[in-house]
Design a protein around this nucleic acid. Sequence first.
DNA 1: CGGTTTACGTCAATATATTGACATAAATCG
DNA 2: CGATTTATGTCAATATATTGACGTAAACCG
Lengths: 150, 150
Amino acid sequence: MNEGMRTSHDPSPGELGVLVKATQALLNQRMDEALRPLGLTVPQYACLSNLIDEPGITSSELARRSFVSRQSMNVLLQGLERAGLVQRSEQPGQRREKAAQLTGRAESLFAQADNAVQAVARRMTAGLGKAQRTELFALLTACGDALSEE
Amino acid sequence: MNEGMRTSHDPSPGELGVLVKATQALLNQRMDEALRPLGLTVPQYACLSNLIDEPGITSSELARRSFVSRQSMNVLLQGLERAGLVQRSEQPGQRREKAAQLTGRAESLFAQADNAVQAVARRMTAGLGKAQRTELFALLTACGDALSEE
DNA sequence: CGGTTTACGTCAATATATTGACATAAATCG
DNA sequence: CGATTTATGTCAATATATTGACGTAAACCG
């Protein structure tokens, strides 16, 4: 019986926590290696990605989506501004917010960066079928939801 | 048909990458909140945990297991030393390594910290059955393996 | 309406982490 | 054996991130 079934561990919650951390660390490392030739860091890429998804977004909102403080996001944005990749509107809006946008040069650079990052992500999930990717998504979502409630 | 089946997404590799990061960030945040009353940070807890698992381990090895540089681990260890939680052997071994060990006081503190952290991990996996935890473990391991090969 | 709360952006101080370099001594290998 | 490689610890400089605080103005609500 159980032919072809691989022996599989019976993980404790703590082991799963460690594994989540280890997986993320490895993914981050690979993304960093993939982005380095383009002169971008992972946080910078994440910032550009969020700005592509929602142009004119505020710095504080970017900070939330990147899981960093708004102060950190501000210095990150300053770096991207200095590099000519983002442009922040002076004389800002009703809530003192300064809308940030990508420059044209940034958009073409981001296209390359996104290719590199997506390749890493595909590599990560190369051994998984469609049903397994769906399952992983559902399981991680359940974990996140459990950690989010009240 | 499909009664009782919840609509489930068909995630791209990139979405899974973002989700891994988001899950880890949330887990880290909850661990931080759980450890703060004890005066410990997550990296400090991880360090103590590794020292419990393998007493006399070297600083560089601790750095590898925590996914940080050995320089960072060194300042972290200095902080733990100053707090009287770890003790490093002077006049060290054959490879210039200084074995680090927990003090008795640290062991009782770690017991409390581990309780708090394990509770967070259990909360994270509260909605998962045994089979689902095993599946999540297998899927994350597959992702890590795919990112590790050559 | 008027007081309170919330939200952005920013300044300052500090903590944390990384990169680069160096000395040292063991391990490796031709 | 002798030369090269590897590994640890450490110093210095720098980058990155956090906490705390402040001013401001919109949103909220009794």
